[in-house]
Nucleic acid binder design. Structure first.
Length: 799
RNA sequence: GCGGGUGUGGUGGAACGGCAGACACGAUGGUCUUAGGAGCCAUUUCUUCGGAGUGUGGGUUCAAAUCCCACCACCCGCACCA
């Protein structure tokens, strides 16, 4: 058959759309499969090959599930709020709404050309007011439950985008969007109290099936540590300075203490500090330091001794000096530490620079050279002396602290509360009203959605305030509580808001009474399999797990965790092996491949190019190889014979087994390789039965659906292959009647012998020793040991 | 620095502790052609043809790419988290 892919592909894309085969049915009797891919941000640049790889994995799984008889929900939507669209709108003077609509249309068209089996009847758009109504609704529920709070804080601020960023969006001190250096700025910030869920976000990981590296990253991100809080009295003012430590066992080794520059006690007792001028100067220097300086100068500790403050070690009674230094941060623990230079590298560096005494309390290492951070026998530690186990010493000290009322066991997390506002136009308005009399008042639920007003200028204000602040009609309003004059909040939600619950909306996208009906949620949740990029494993995933757990606590969703299983695809690198980027000029446009080789070739190539979870470079010549493969498949009908012998039968049973299981394990490359091998075998043999042909097409159809539909139809089938039953295999038929196994002598392969898979040992060795080619290996030697693993190998040890 | 991962032909990559290099790409030779960046056939880890080979060096085992120990290189997270 001539393989006219463009004709075949447009024909079947049209048929799929018209017949609605990929629309999920709310048939609660059928077993369900909910496959989720990360919905794209519809950028003006259009689709990237990375999108295709990200979607292809679950695309083939979803197609397989339909063939296995599942009711499949494989939805698509658009995460369309966000800065790039807004920046483009500012640049071109177009409204973000128009930009978004145009981009979504363009994106949809491109996705359809690849033949993804998405349910296009459930498309969602986070910027649609019928969608963001519910984003605001959930926010108000959180407000109601005390999970939303406002605070003035030093925030990560991007001077270029003029926007406050969360810690997650400013990793490494760079803006996630424009890569500019972040500065610290004092601002009013809305927070979501995600830390309240820290422990459950951590323990919930035990119940889900995420790839190990994904779990690990989330565990790291949450960053739980256990230790103790200890109170040190300050002699001069009598107040207790509370610190957090993971090493209470080293309490006897404390030789100084350090406070963060922003620690409130410094201002509180300014009059008692003799060198306050010096301290103030140091604090100023710290606030000016860029993130770069702070991270690059880690080894070079700076600080100032607080003259006039002396702390008292609560267990030894020793008097110890207190310093301020920016190696201690206000944002973690209590903003103050006990320093044990003998057993902590950072404290050691600091003590070394400032000439502070170093007191060893754990035996081992060489304290004159470096801090000893391993475990060992406790010394110079009063009642802990002689203990060799770190955990025992920690336990004993913690119990002692608690019994004396000078401390207690404690837990800390690296994860911070979620800064939840942006001073931008293209986001969900925060539905809160500020009333002089009543304070912060939520917009009543029945007034949702709180719509974005029409604005002509999307440029943020110079002071970093939202463009909404300039719209008088929007800002001025009545307090929903007292009816008095009030002002609306003008900040909008961050991009991560809409994506925190979108998988819930897919279940019931047109519901106007609720974000989704309980019956439908009950049936479809949890998401059975979620695939996406590693870059979203810490931010988007943790945020959405948090929202989900919140909704679960309100009884609004049926499961504690949203995603039962999570995998991640590897990057597609440029042909040069580098990460694709416009500046390197190594970006591959998927549309060109579709035009030139067809969507089926593109799909097969992307899944064949390498291990799905690893990065792999693009290779156009390999794309051509996949084209050749499909062309040969298109010629397969010529080999179909009615009276074909069943010589290849076991090959087919093996292939069904391998392709089926490889797909489940994300090993699409070897699944396709198996189909290639089978094709080679068929061509070598020269004929194939009608039934075998049918099996072959069904196995290949998730990967190359257009071509397989066409061949399927040509072979006389009336129904689409998309709903044909997935082939089954017979385990007993995957085993050959004879196998050729290797014969090793002293571990080296010396020949082979043909035996039955379960042949008796005696019989096998009779054949081995009768073999003329092998005989030379035994002459003049004594057989010491005979090893036979049925179906695998023979190894003979001789001397 | 900490955490995780990877290391196999010219290339992408296969390989439940059991014949390393499946499947492809590329290359070489042949065939068919006015032509070949098409198709088909053959060869393709290295080799002094004895063997040697999965980053390096040890170990466990009848048997190691695979398990254990040490080291080296690269990639990805986090980064003064007390």
């Amino acid at each position: 058959m001539k393989y006219d892919f463009s004709e075949i592909e447009s024909k079947w894309q049209k048929k799929w759309q018209e017949s609605k085969v990929f629309e999920a049915k709310d048939d609660f009797e059928k077993p369900k499969f909910y496959g989720l891919i990360e919905f794209p941000y519809p950028s003006g640049a259009g689709m990237h090959v990375g999108h295709i790889k990200a979607y292809s994995g679950l695309e083939v799984i979803s197609r397989k599930r339909r063939m296995q008889g599942y009711n499949v929900l494989f939805p698509i939507g658009f995460d369309a709020f966000g800065l790039p669209t807004e920046n483009y709108a500012i640049k071109t003077g177009t409204h973000p709404r128009q930009v978004t609509d145009k981009n979504i249309e363009h994106f949809s068209e491109q996705l359809k050309k690849v033949g993804f089996s998405f349910d296009w009847s459930r498309v969602i758009d986070t910027t649609d007011e019928n969608y963001y109504k519910w984003t605001q609704w959930i926010f108000l529920k959180m407000f109601e439950k005390g999970l939303v709070f406002r605070d003035t804080a030093l925030v990560n601020y991007c001077p270029s985008c003029k926007v406050v960023l969360s810690n997650e969006d400013s990793q490494g001190g760079k803006c996630d969007i424009c890569k500019s250096d972040i500065v610290q700025k004092s601002k009013d910030v809305w927070y979501l109290r995600i830390t309240k869920y820290a422990d459950r976000l951590l323990s919930g990981l035990d119940e889900v099936d995420y790839l190990p590296n994904i779990k690990m990253q989330q565990v790291n991100w949450i960053g739980k540590s256990t230790g103790a809080f200890v109170d040190f009295e300050i002699k001069e003012c009598g107040e207790k300075l509370r610190i957090y430590t993971t090493r209470p066992d080293t309490l006897f080794g404390v030789t100084f203490m350090v406070m963060a520059p922003e620690h409130p006690m410094i201002d509180k007792y300014a009059d008692k500090i003799k060198n306050f001028d010096l301290i103030s100067k140091y604090r100023e220097e710290c606030s000016k330091k860029t993130e770069f300086e702070r991270t690059q100068l880690v080894k070079d500790k700076t600080g100032v001794k607080i003259e006039g403050f002396t702390a008292i070690n609560p267990v030894s009674g020793e008097e110890i000096p207190i310093y301020i230094s920016d190696y201690v941060m206000m944002g973690y623990g209590t903003g103050a530490i006990m320093a044990v230079p003998a057993h902590d590298e950072r404290d050691y560096d600091f003590a070394h620079k400032f000439g502070i005494n170093i007191k060893q309390v754990i035996k081992g290492g060489d304290i004159s050279k470096e801090a000893y951070t391993e475990s060992g026998e406790m010394i110079n530690s009063g009642f802990l002396d002689g203990i060799k186990e770190k955990s025992v010493a920690i336990k004993k000290m913690t119990e002692y602290l608690a019994s004396k009322g000078i401390g207690e066991a404690g837990v800390q997390y690296k994860m911070k509360d979620w800064a939840f506002n942006r001073q931008r136009y293209w986001g969900e308005p925060i539905p809160i009203v500020h009333c002089g009399k009543c304070g912060m008042v939520p917009v009543p639920y029945e007034e949702l959605p709180l719509r974005l007003p029409e604005v002509s200028n999307f440029q943020p204000g110079e002071g970093g305030e939202s463009p909404l602040a300039k719209i008088e009609e929007f800002v001025t309003c009545k307090c929903p509580k007292c009816g008095g004059p009030a002002k609306r909040e003008t900040d909008t939600m961050p991009q991560w808001a809409g994506s925190s619950w979108y998988y819930l909306r897919y279940v019931d996208p047109k519901n106007d009474k609720m974000f989704a009906s309980p019956e439908k949620l009950n049936y479809w949740l949890p998401v059975d399999w979620y695939n996406g990029g590693m870059e979203h494993v810490t931010r988007h995933m943790i945020y959405s797990r948090f929202w989900h757990k919140f909704l679960y606590d309100l009884g609004l969703v049926p499961t504690d965790e949203p995603y039962a299983k999570r995998t991640a695809q590897g990057l597609i690198l440029g042909p040069d092996g580098e990460k694709m980027s416009k500046s390197k000029g190594n970006v591959v446009d998927p549309n060109e491949t579709v035009e030139k080789y067809g969507a089926d070739v593109l799909r097969v190539y992307i899944l064949f190019m390498g291990d799905y979870a690893s990065a792999a470079p693009w290779s156009e010549s390999s794309v051509r190889g996949c084209k050749r493969f499909l062309e040969r498949v298109a010629d397969l009908p010529g080999l179909v014979k009615d009276d074909c012998k069943d010589k290849l039968d076991s090959h087919f049973h093996k292939a069904v087994k391998k392709v089926s299981s490889d797909m489940e394990e994300l090993k699409f490359n070897t699944a396709i390789a198996q189909l290639m091998t089978l094709l080679n075998e068929i061509e070598d043999y020269g004929e194939i039965s009608k039934e075998q042909y049918s099996v072959y097409l069904r196995l290949l159809s998730p990967f190359a659906p257009h071509l397989c539909e066409e061949l399927w139809e040509k072979s006389g089938e009336k129904e689409m292959i998309a709903l044909a039953p997935w082939p089954k295999y017979d385990e007993s038929k995957t085993v050959d009647s004879t196998v050729e196994i290797a014969v090793q002598v002293n571990g080296k392969v010396r020949g082979t012998v043909c035996v039955a898979p379960d042949e008796e040992k005696d019989s096998v060795f009779k054949k081995v020793f009768a073999d003329e080619k092998l005989a030379g290996n035994f002459t003049g030697k004594t057989v010491v040991k005979e090893i036979y693993i049925p179906g695998k190998i023979v190894n003979i040890v001789v001397k």
